[in-house]
Design a binder for these strands. Structure first.
Lengths: 209, 209, 209, 209
DNA sequence: CATGAATGAGTGTTCATTCAT
DNA sequence: TATGAATGAACACTCATTCAT
């Protein structure tokens, strides 16, 4: 699907406002105003508010999947290094696409069987499969422990990053990091999360500390 | 604040629907219908939809704080055991009050300076202070490592539990646990999270694996 | 009709708020609060909000009719003096019962055939009849001119006083009488209107200036 | 401000119903129905019910001010004739814009400091200034008496016309003028008021009868 | 292709009134 | 008799969407 400049403006505005106020809290009027287009354009281009949300998802999930395919075949690096690369990749994606991920967090909680719920499920399943391959590879080679609850491990990965995103104001205040610019703080979060999660994963996956 | 039976019915219904659909997604008519009361009762009892949300928060946060005070003085158990008790306490609270915690997750993301944002901030700050005391106690006695990023550690605790809650359907499906009753599955989650988090914390806090 | 203390409190509160905000602008809750009684009392005592309005009317129109009967028979004073007494009486009544008269002004404009419209019509008719007798008496004795449009004359009397009441803020400001207390200003209005209207009536009724 | 046909329909309907039932007594649904437009159009065009009221005022007060400027400079007519022209002008305006003037009467009585209260005050002040000039001109030339309470005089003018408007049903009934058409009756009122007020003013302003 | 105007359903809230005690 | 609780209808207003051009 190729979108025009105006359509992309709408998608960007929608992502921002959906993240900030939730689906119901963001009105199509607000979105249209934010995107600097006529209100009618949203129905005109996307059919409905719900379809716009789906478009946001499709647009943002295109390149969101973890790039694990090439990684698997690369024999020059250790299995743990591969996992570490994946962690960095994931943290980066999350921090750079905070707004979209906020939407995901919200939508995950809704129990309705919407098309979006399906998209999220699909995405998570594929990510899980990629990781599983990587882990099983490491287990086969003896690098990783047996009996690893991969879903639980992923829950800690995703959960820690999510929580850091949703409560970043609190984290910043408590640690007195208000002096940083937004970008500096993002780098700080990125580094901190990276080190922290690599340590955790090393412990989960291997027997060493 | 003491609430009547009807008021509690409204609070319960509101908690459920706010958790499921978000504040804007849940209409007062829906809530009234769920609570089996007249729509006007909500304004009558709580003044407004916003005030109802605040009532939900006040009602649910009354007993939500971690019971760390008595724990600190108990000298019969090790510092790590104290932390483990706290983890169990936290996991229990979260699982038994899933719906309220979903609301908290949602509200955390909104950047507006609402009274509720203040309540959440206060709650997190107090919990953090409690934990900090416990950890510093352990550090002073040499049981725990120095240089522990407590906020980050808490982020992993809260994040992992949150993520488990929000994606429990996915977790259940992938692990083929649909055969369990809701209560059995909750027990399973509780146990799994408890063991997992205790392991992680042991690694974070001490030098042993 | 005898009213209890509470009923009178309600009637007084209703008069005040109906005058200030109009019938629809004053809620029964406001009235109950102003009267310091339970909301349900209003329906309980008076049946409905409309009936309360009627009660206000009945209560206030009991003694509002011009006391012309005795005046007619008094042969010690001239016809013009009798008219002047009536003018003073009318001005006094209006100024001391400003609030009720404001309600009357409002209700007069509604075209619906309410019981209140009937009460107002009746009151005006009786007042007109009283005046007419007095004027015709004066005409018979040769004191007053023939061909006097009594209704039109009364329109000027009532209209001037009404207008003074409704625009008293404007009158006070323009004439820089803010330094007066409320009571002083009422006395001032009373005197000014009295002199002014007596002059006008003298001109209308007689041939002298 | 230029209004579309639909907007004018709304303004006309609002004027009618506000005059008849007062601001609070006239619902936006009634107004929309009277104007034969969708309820939402009122918010769409005017923003709110209050803003609609303001629009009614702005629309109706555009040409409502007394045309005294040219009159002052005209040297071919006497001062009293000028006053008489003004009286006719005023009576005409009032009778032709009865409904709007009813709104003014109602709004005048509310003590709140609304934008509309300000508009009314401004209008009355300007009208008063115009009249004052005219009167002072006449006084300077010796045509009019000294020591005239102009505000009081205007109170009689405005009050008499107001009262005639608000109680026209009574006037008509008492004088047995029901046989007239609405327009005939309006002409009758116009003529009657004109003669009556000119007489009164002549007496107030000059020494002759 | 694009848009201002328009719509009907829905929002949270307040209303006068009635109910149960 | 007196009242807190409760009700259904109505309130002004906003919503996502559609229409006419």
């Amino acid at each position: 699907m190729e979108y025009s400049e105006k359509q992309l403006a709408i998608i960007n505005a929608a992502e921002k406002l959906f993240a900030l106020r939730g689906f119901d809290g963001a009105s199509v009027r607000d979105i249209a105003h934010e995107a600097d287009v006529n209100v009618a354009m949203i129905s005109y281009y996307f059919g409905s508010k719900e379809k716009l949300m789906e478009a946001v998802f499709e647009e943002r999930t295109n390149n969101i999947r973890l790039k694990v395919e090439n990684l698997l075949q690369n024999e020059g690096i250790s299995h743990l290094q591969k996992v570490n690369i994946l962690i960095d990749d994931y943290v980066d994606k999350f921090i750079h696409q905070q707004e979209f991920h906020k939407i995901m967090i919200r939508e995950q909680m809704i129990e309705k069987d919407t098309p979006i719920a399906g998209l999220i499920h699909e995405l998570k399943k594929k990510n899980l499969e990629s990781i599983t391959k990587l882990i099983e590879d490491g287990q086969a080679s003896g690098s990783f422990k047996k009996n690893i609850d991969i879903v639980l491990m992923m829950t800690t990965l995703v959960g820690t990053v999510c929580q850091m995103i949703t409560s970043q104001h609190f984290y910043r205040k408590v640690n007195k990091l208000e002096y940083m610019t937004e970008i500096e703080f993002q780098k700080h979060m990125r580094k901190t999360l990276s080190v922290h999660l690599k340590n955790l994963f090393k412990q989960i996956l291997t027997n060493e500390a």
